[in-house]
């Protein structure tokens, strides 16, 4: 089964996208497969509403493991299932918490193994902060590394917020070579295009 890995800085909306996209594809419930950085695996079943409350929030580093959902998409005449994997946010510098550091290492390990990578940027924050502050070294380096692994594209998230348009312009200028989809995990705008693209690459 194909795996699509979601990566990005903390708080850009990776988990929100995972759940929202699952809902968009028709699910009301998800079976989340959780893999902690020490390698243990467990599963939990939640309604998407519950999962959203539990796993999405305004502070960084909420997600500290890999968590995935198996989804299905129509491909050609049939349907194909794939695993959408959410990861813990990557940031530069040395984080004080060993748990966060182990989680980041786990994310990089997953990037190394991934064939399809979805890199999420917070367009609203980038619009607010501008190019040099908003798009960090980490995003550029991650982009460069992830592109070598296989299929790779960007989501400019939080397009529902003010300033996100300006953020999108900055993103497309900074990453000229990369396909970028403007989306909102909140309103599901742009999901149709993402769905079509994912179906092409899995």
């Amino acid at each position: 089964m194909h795996k699509c890995l979601i990566v990005g800085k903390p708080n850009v909306g990776k988990t929100a996208f995972l759940l929202s996209f699952s809902r968009y594809l028709g699910l009301a419930q998800v079976e989340l497969r959780v893999r902690t950085s020490d390698g243990s695996i467990h599963a939990k079943r939640r309604s998407i509403d519950c999962a959203y409350t539990e796993l999405v929030g305004p502070v960084p580093h909420i997600t500290q493991e890999l968590q995935s959902v198996v989804l299905e998409l129509p491909v050609g005449k049939g349907r194909r299932s794939f695993e959408l994997v959410d990861s813990s946010g990557i940031m530069d510098g040395i984080h004080a918490s060993p748990v966060v550091r182990a989680a980041m290492a786990q994310t990089l390990e997953a990037v190394t193994a991934a064939k399809v990578i979805i890199h999420i940027l917070d367009a609203a924050a980038i619009g607010l902060l501008g190019l040099s502050e908003g798009v960090g070294v980490i995003d550029r380096d991650l982009a460069e590394y992830a592109q070598q692994q296989g299929e790779y594209f960007l989501l400019a998230n939080k397009m529902d917020l003010a300033g996100a348009q300006r953020g999108l312009q900055i993103i497309t200028k900074a990453f000229t070579q990369v396909q970028t989809f403007p989306v909102s995990a909140l309103t599901m705008e742009g999901f149709k295009e993402v769905k079509r693209h994912v179906a092409r690459v899995i």
């Binding site: 940031m91 550091r101 290492a105 990089l108 980490i138 380096d141």
Partner: peptide
């Protein structure tokens, strides 16, 4: 994970 290098250095 040990905190000896940053994520950017790791990449």
């Amino acid at each position: 994970a040990k905190g000896n290098i940053t994520a950017v250095e790791a990449i």
